[in-house]
Nucleic acid binder design. Structure first.
Length: 220
DNA sequence: CAGTCGATTCACT
DNA sequence: GTGAATCGACTGA
C-alpha cells in the first residue's frame, strides 16, 4: 500500500537548504511522535529560524559545544535542549553537516492523540493550549534529551518524524521578530506562523533578568 | 570554581 | 502584570 502524499516523510534534502527557506515551509507539516504510550500528531503552526554560528540569537553563536553538537550534525535530525531548569525544546536541524542552523518548533495543533496529549499536559485548559509554546509542545509529545540527535526522516520506524502534511500557502504565512531573543539577534523577522491560527503562542519580548555581575541595589 | 541567566510556563494579584 | 520555579551550560577569573 502506497502512503498518501501528505503521509510521506520529508526527505533529508528538504532540510539540507538555507534555514530561512526551510522554516516557513514547515508550517502545516505533520510532526509524528510514536512511543510505547501511543502516537501523537501535531500540525506545525509556529516556528523560529536560528541561523548558525553567525546568528547572535543562536545557541551555536559561540561555536560548537557538547550541548549544541547535534545542530552541527547532518540535517533532518533533532536538536533538543533543556531550558529554565525544567523544560525541553525541539529544533529541526537544517543545512549541510558542519553548519549549525535549526528551526525551533514553537507551536502546533494536536490532530491525533489528543487524549494522550491531555494526559501529559493536565494543566492545559483547552485543546489549543496542548502544544501552544515550545516547551508545551515538547511536553505534549514527550520530547526529552533522549530524542536529541534522532533522525527525523526515518518515517514510522523512528520515534519522531515530519510528514509532508498540508503546507500553509505562502500568502498565509506571517513573520515577525523572534520571541525571547535579545541583543543583536532581536530584530530579524525570523519567527513564522500561520495567519490567524489559535495555536500560535503569544509574542513576548526579551526581558533580561539582570545586567552583568551581581551588584548591590542602586541606592535610591 | 562560583556566579549568572536562559529560544518558558504557571500561579497569583 | 509580576514573580517563582529549577538546573545546568557557559563565562571569566
Amino acid at each position: 500500500m502506497i502512503a498518501a502524499p501528505d503521509r510521506m516523510p520529508l526527505a533529508r534534502e528538504f532540510f539540507d537548504r538555507p534555514v530561512l527557506e526551510v522554516a516557513p515551509e514547515l508550517l502545516g507539516r505533520t510532526l509524528v511522535r510514536t512511543s510505547p504510550e501511543g502516537t501523537i500528531e501535531v500540525r506545525i503552526t509556529e516556528v523560529e529560524a536560528y541561523a548558525g554560528e553567525a546568528d547572535p540569537g543562536s545557541h551555536a553563536y559561540r561555536g560548537r559545544t557538547e550541548r549544541n553538537a547535534s545542530m552541527f550534525g547532518p540535517p533532518g535530525h533533532a536538536y533538543v535542549y533543556f531550558i529554565y531548569g525544567m523544560w525541553f525544546s525541539l529544533n529541526l536541524v537544517c543545512g549541510p553537516e558542519g553548519t549549525a542552523s535549526g528551526v525551533l518548533l514553537r507551536g502546533g495543533e494536536v490532530i491525533e492523540g489528543v487524549d494522550l496529549a491531555r494526559a501529559r499536559r493536565p494543566k492545559a485548559r483547552r485543546d489549543r493550549e496542548l502544544a501552544q509554546g515550545p516547551a508545551r509542545l515538547a511536553t505534549a509529545l514527550d520530547v526529552t534529551r533522549a530524542l536529541n540527535g534522532v533522525d527525523l526522516c526515518a518515517g514510522p520506524n523512528g520515534p519522531l518524524s515530519v510528514l509532508a502534511g498540508h503546507p500553509v500557502p505562502p500568502d498565509q504565512v506571517r513573520s515577525g521578530p523572534r520571541t525571547g531573543v535579545g541583543g543583536d539577534g532581536a530584530h530579524h523577522p525570523w519567527r513564522f506562523w500561520a495567519d490567524g491560527d489559535p495555536t500560535v503562542s503569544q509574542y513576548r519580548p526579551h526581558v533580561p533578568r539582570n545586567r552583568g555581575k551581581a551588584r548591590q541595589q542602586d541606592g535610591a
